[in-house]
């Protein structure tokens, strides 16, 4: 177990997660929304790492690798979708996407 307190690490993860959540809710630029989602994923990874360090097991880092892969796949598809929607509706403002049907 490291010298860092378990609760302190989880608190840091919670703060980062809330920052990302606030970004997702408050921002309208869709790239910034994706960026905020990345911040939230980072926070989740931090929580997992802290838990792994707390019990001194490698499982935390293994699960962090899974989170990393999920984030990479999500970003690849998300950015492709952004390119696509910017091609169709010349806007990155998520309030402008009002004509999605079917």
């Amino acid at each position: 177990m490291t010298s860092v307190d378990f609760g302190t690490g989880l608190t840091l993860a919670a703060i980062l997660f809330v920052i990302g959540l606030a970004g997702v809710i408050a921002r309208r630029n869709i790239i910034m929304i994706l960026l905020s989602i990345e911040i939230m994923m980072n926070a989740a990874g931090l929580a997992v790492i802290v838990a792994g360090a707390r019990w001194g097991q490698p499982d935390g880092q293994a699960v962090f690798l899974f989170i990393l892969a999920v984030a990479a796949a999500e970003i690849a598809v998300g950015l492709a979708l952004i390119l696509r929607i910017h091609h169709r509706i010349k806007s990155l403002d998520s309030d402008d996407y009002t004509q999605m049907k079917g």
Partner: peptide
């Protein structure tokens, strides 16, 4: 932070 927590690979 990860490094300090003892996760250099992560």
């Amino acid at each position: 932070v990860f490094f300090v927590l003892g996760a250099p690979f992560a």
